[in-house]
Amino acid sequence: MRLVVVSAGLSTPSSTRLLADRLAAATGPFAEAAAGGPLAEVETEVVEVRDLAVEIAHSLTTGFPGPALGAAIEAVREADGLIVVTPVFSASYSGLFKSFFDAVSGADKDALAGKPVLVAATGGSARHSLVLDHALRPLFAYLRAVVVPTGVYAASEDWGAEGLAGRIDRAGAELARLMRPAERPDRSAPEPVVPFAEQLAALGQR
């Protein structure tokens, strides 16, 4: 199965990436167990949105993704489960994080439909923790993803406190339970098409 982690941290090292890696590590074993042991090995791929910043901006003006962004979009489309982690900027997800998912849905509006997604965010204080429920959940609900019940928010203080590890494990287990090896559409197959007669008939034309 394929687990794709989208991390939108901007600094290196970044606490967003730190949280992303912890969530991925927590999800993998549960997912393998849920799918019947190591036979169902989980491949994890990390998309660092920072590395795609310029291509994301260009895709907004050109309407098509450059090569690296195109590969990242493809990875997201092909994922059996998704972990998305953003820093909190101005009471919401970062603009770059949003623009990445704008590019994903611009390339394929159904890319996330039915896909299990674990939402997570980092911030300087716990005062922003509802960003998960007030910003990330609506975004992924719009994209028709299945958002796992537990979201994980890590404020700076959480990295030295109890409780974060438990939330990470719970969220990872929830994501793993929802992941199923998807039947991947054959991208080399010819473009699907609605026969024209049906379009005419729908309008009462001949």
Binding site: G63, F64, E191, P192, V193, V194, P195, F196, A197, Q199
Partner: peptide, 22 residues
């Protein structure tokens, strides 16, 4: 794709304005 289908249905020409696309 609906427009490619329309062109095909009628046996008309199909012009792909590819200038801004890969």
């Amino acid at each position: 794709p609906e427009i490619a289908e329309q062109a095909a249905y009628y046996g008309d020409g199909f012009f792909h304005n590819n200038i801004f696309w890969p």
